[in-house]
């Protein structure tokens, strides 16, 4: 009997159309900058940002560095605001830098390697490596496969062995103590293979970028295929990014 009670309360949980998802207005997604912001305010914002994501001249906010604390928008709501737009992923590092007057993060579909869409457009297996991640992005990546988001419906799943994987999803700033393990894991994956950086800490090193416990040499000779800002990355940011990368969705 107790099983039926659980089932009845559980009902249907999956989100029927992932493309129709909107997050609550308070969600801290893609920021928006006002071009009319005066220089004094820009300078103040530059000083205020604890991770150096904001530049006064030219006025910009780098979502690859931003930890989405929103203190800038709290102090200067006219100059910076955070929208609920979760479509923040891109294959181009420069596209993560938000400038005034833009409301979408560009995705260079033409720049995606030719084989990516044809090889991975129907099924994709990813190996996740946490290299100093704080556990929150890891939990959000787990959540992409849960009963609500059910990313598996598109044939996209996380796998245990790098031998079964088509790419690696890295979280965290990449610690020195994990550098070798990450390298071994990546080498075990067959070509062609993807590199996805999940979270602002993976993209830029975040708060730990300058610390000697960090070793980002893995990225020195390699170009990531997808960069997903967030602290942590929301499951919808991940789903949207991977779908766009594999050509199953277009960024408007």
């Amino acid at each position: 009997m107790s099983k039926f009670k659980v089932l009845r309360s559980h009902g249907k949980q999956f989100i029927p159309d992932l493309n129709a998802v909107t997050l609550p207005p308070i969600f801290r997604g893609r920021p928006s900058l006002d071009a009319r912001t005066d220089e004094a305010t820009r300078r103040a914002l530059e000083r205020l940002c604890p991770v150096g994501a904001i530049t006064a001249e030219p006025f910009s906010l780098d979502t690859g560095r931003c930890l989405f604390c929103k203190e800038c928008a709290m102090a200067h709501p006219d100059a910076v605001s955070f929208t609920n737009n979760y479509k923040m992923g891109s294959n181009d590092r420069r596209a993560l830098v938000v400038t005034p007057g833009t409301d979408t993060t560009p995705f260079e579909a033409d720049a995606v390697r030719e084989r990516i869409c044809s090889y991975f457009g129907h099924a994709l297996r990813l190996r996740q490596v946490s290299a100093g991640g704080d556990g929150s992005t890891e939990m959000e990546l787990n959540a992409t496969g849960n009963v609500n988001f059910d990313f598996g419906r598109y044939g996209i799943e996380f796998t245990a062995s790098p031998r079964h994987a088509d790419g690696v999803v890295i979280t965290g700033p990449i610690t020195r103590n994990m550098a070798e393990a990450l390298e071994i894991c990546y080498r075990a994956i067959a070509e062609p293979k993807l590199i996805i950086l999940a979270g602002s800490e993976a993209i830029s090193g975040g708060l730990f970028a300058e610390n000697r416990a960090i070793d980002r040499s893995f990225l020195a000779t390699r170009t990531p295929d997808l960069l997903l800002p967030g602290n942590p990355v929301h499951p919808m940011t991940f789903i949207d990014g991977v779908m766009t990368l594999t050509g199953r969705k277009k960024r408007e």
């Binding site: 965290g172 700033p173 020195r176 103590n177 730990f208 610390n211 000697r212 416990a213």
Partner: peptide, 9 residues
């Protein structure tokens, strides 16, 4: 393996 230098930071 996860050591990032939090206390130092």
């Amino acid at each position: 393996f996860q050591h990032r230098g939090v206390e130092e930071e």
